[in-house]
Nucleic acid binder design. Sequence first.
DNA 1: ATGAAAGCGCTAACAT
DNA 2: ATGTTAGCGCTTTCAT
Lengths: 385, 385
Amino acid sequence: MPSGKPTLRDVAKAAGVSPMTASNALHGKPGVKDSTRAKVLAVAEKLDYRINLTASMLKSGRSNIIHIIVNEFDSPFYSKLVESLVTETTERGLTPFVEQTRYSPDAAKHALANNPFSGQLFDGEIIHASGLNAGVPLSAINHGRPLVLIDACEETPTFDTVNFPNEDGARAAVQHLIECGCHRIAIVGDGYSPRTELAHVESSSGLRLRGASGALLDAGLPYDESTNFIGYGSDSGIEAGHAIAEAMLEARAQSADDTAESRSPGTTRATGSTPAIDGIFCINDYAAFGVIRGLADYGIRVPDDVRVIGFDGATAGSYTTPTLSTVQVDLDQLAQFALDMITRRVEQRDQGDGRSDESAGMPATRATIGYTLVPRESTVGSANR
Amino acid sequence: MPSGKPTLRDVAKAAGVSPMTASNALHGKPGVKDSTRAKVLAVAEKLDYRINLTASMLKSGRSNIIHIIVNEFDSPFYSKLVESLVTETTERGLTPFVEQTRYSPDAAKHALANNPFSGQLFDGEIIHASGLNAGVPLSAINHGRPLVLIDACEETPTFDTVNFPNEDGARAAVQHLIECGCHRIAIVGDGYSPRTELAHVESSSGLRLRGASGALLDAGLPYDESTNFIGYGSDSGIEAGHAIAEAMLEARAQSADDTAESRSPGTTRATGSTPAIDGIFCINDYAAFGVIRGLADYGIRVPDDVRVIGFDGATAGSYTTPTLSTVQVDLDQLAQFALDMITRRVEQRDQGDGRSDESAGMPATRATIGYTLVPRESTVGSANR
DNA sequence: ATGAAAGCGCTAACAT
DNA sequence: ATGTTAGCGCTTTCAT
């Protein structure tokens, strides 16, 4: 027996067959007598043979590895997204290779283009495209290789894309706040945009804002700059929480003034005080956690003083205090869609005549995943428990 | 120009040198004239040459890929651990390959042994060993390849190991509760063990329990089964929270009874009622979040009614409500230690005469990372903010 | 159903 | 400082 690790030739020799037959037997390819296959498998088992993927990949050009690119690992949203993608990839017998960009377009570009694996090792790539569109020339980087974008939100997709139910989900969230009796609803996200500018947005945050503002206007509630706050993660969410708290306290004070004024009608004042904010839609759960935290810094309680709902369905929302109402998106479905799209293209390429250099091939497809509105303490209180 | 992707030969030809020179130039190896190197690099750039790692690995037997194995992605602790390990690996010019086992020893075994990459592709492996010792015969699986265990807690390490400051950190956490004025402190973890059995524990949870119970006994406070609850994640943590809440309410009721009894001294009763729990040490932050949540279900507030401290330093602890006091472990240091251990072995192997088959080589080393006690609202209230 | 030949793209080892 | 040779372990192709 040779010194190092057993190779396919060792197995073949010990089984009394050629390397080719051994290879076919091990891969379950047809055209191998059952008895032969059994013998090969037994020998491989005995020798503890392990295929050398490196050689296999070199020759065959296929790796069964799927490249998964996300912004970061340590956030409530991404850790769950990765979990879903990795699980689905593994269940299909493929190997997930996960990479993070830390929100840097350069890192994303590197992951896609300069990474020595890209284009040679990976059978397909899945990238969470949020905030990527600007900085990364995908078409120039991707030479017809299977690529799926997550939440790219393009109206005319240039790549296979799985989108979140951004507009509908946000609309449902705000409608839920309205049903809870909220009259003055704040939006925490990327900042205010007038409705006209939202008509053709192609970003996740823009679409969520469109859905949220649409729900407000449909209900005859105001949508303006004064109720828009910036928050997209825990830190900025805390700041948004502080800003909202101050606005609420000011409104309370003003309302107290008004009451006082009504008794002594000598003062000149704008008529009708602004009512205090009583509901908050956050563009994602991560920001919502921060907002609740920020409100608490001012002694404002959720949902007693103001109701809060997030978006995404982060795992943590079920065990925070209060538990977080949210629009739970179906990430398992997302993973299924994404891998369907990848495998479809891989198979096409395998069957293709090999001539189509940039294999324009099939047009880009698009899918949108489902969602569930999950009411929890942060909107309906503990009565619901 | 050839049809497919440019190979090293294409670059060499275009630069008017041999493939070997081109290879050396691209790898920054010494012994290449500067002008030659410049020319090669320019040509490679122009052709958009990308090294074929698969071929390179096949020939050289090195991949620069580090295998990182953790239990899961979507938990406050692991997402941060992965973040640190991946960042450090990347900064050293190595490529992290992250895999999750979902707490299955079989999956861990598979990742380490059956995974087609293992032992051929990876230059080194880092595995979070918690709850692994029993099910996985590491020595049989690992054939002298660089392997680092995280928190294996073995007294006599068989592999390079980086441990958490389990005992000291837990001790510090409980001391903090005591300094806050707690007299009756519950422990939420893997369950009660008598002190004698804790003398030689070799598990993370056992060591934390040893530290916690030691701090109690040192302060003359009781350590017994009645104040030990089972909780190690959010769900079990919630259950522990419920159990503790019920114990607290019962103690309150009993104390009310006692007061009543003292007025009507006719009843026979055990003397001295049990005081209510006023402090809780949780074996990790994940459980602590659940405990706080479970307490809230009973209307028990933290820290007003009971103080809570966790362990790990999960990112979320800084933006939950209340913010979570914790023993923050230095995961960046952990990543540095782990990669130092790996590279040390890789280098040794590279320099080795290649004869040492199972390269027993260097003895296993062990390191323990540092920690910081972070007091937050859950123990000291918002005065601290 | 099985085998033989050839070579994927690169780099270690040895020339020059 | 550069070039030549050989072959890593596998699988595609073509024979038998």
